[in-house]
Design a protein around this nucleic acid. Structure first.
Length: 139
DNA sequence: GCCAACGTTGGC
DNA sequence: GCCAACGTTGGC
């Protein structure tokens, strides 16, 4: 199973908002970046993604799961843009901050650290395990 | 609120 | 196809 990381500004749409959507989840619309879109196209049902709060908090707060494959973004008529649906799975016992990632040598190559601006990123299995550990999950 | 980094757009 | 201008993102 592949792993991902998705960013959101919590004052626009945060972890609590995703939890409130329940099992049906939420359309991850509004992405206008080819790399991010390509990542979403590569997602499979059941893939898991870290949910990252940008700007406010700057930390990974929980784990979400892909519950719908990439489909046209309903917020635009532009056929280039697609999005997946995600739903909340589990909150991290301890949020993992951006600084925590920068301070962790095993995460030195993480996209979050090196290409800060990409809003939908792949996460390697090794990085996933490290962050689960830092976040207080068994993995 | 500022500004640096990055991606996209559009003129040539 | 290049590159300058512009817009957006996101940390600080």
């Amino acid at each position: 199973m592949a792993h991902w990381l998705m960013k959101s500004e919590p004052d626009v749409f945060g972890w609590d908002d995703l939890v409130a959507k329940g099992a049906s989840g939420e359309e991850w619309d509004g992405v206008r970046n080819y790399q991010a879109r390509n990542n979403m196209r590569a997602m499979a049902i059941g893939d898991q993604a870290f949910f990252y709060h940008s700007n406010i908090g700057k930390e990974i707060v929980g784990i979400a799961e892909i519950c719908a494959l990439a489909h046209p973004d309903s917020t635009t008529d532009d056929p280039r843009w697609e999005c997946v649906d995600i739903r909340a799975v589990e909150k991290l016992p301890r949020p993992v901050g951006l600084q925590d990632c920068k301070d962790e040598p095993r995460l030195a190559d993480m996209v979050l650290v090196n290409n800060m601006r990409l809003s939908v990123q792949p996460v390697t299995d090794a990085e996933w395990a490290v962050i689960c550990e830092l976040g207080g999950l068994k993995g």
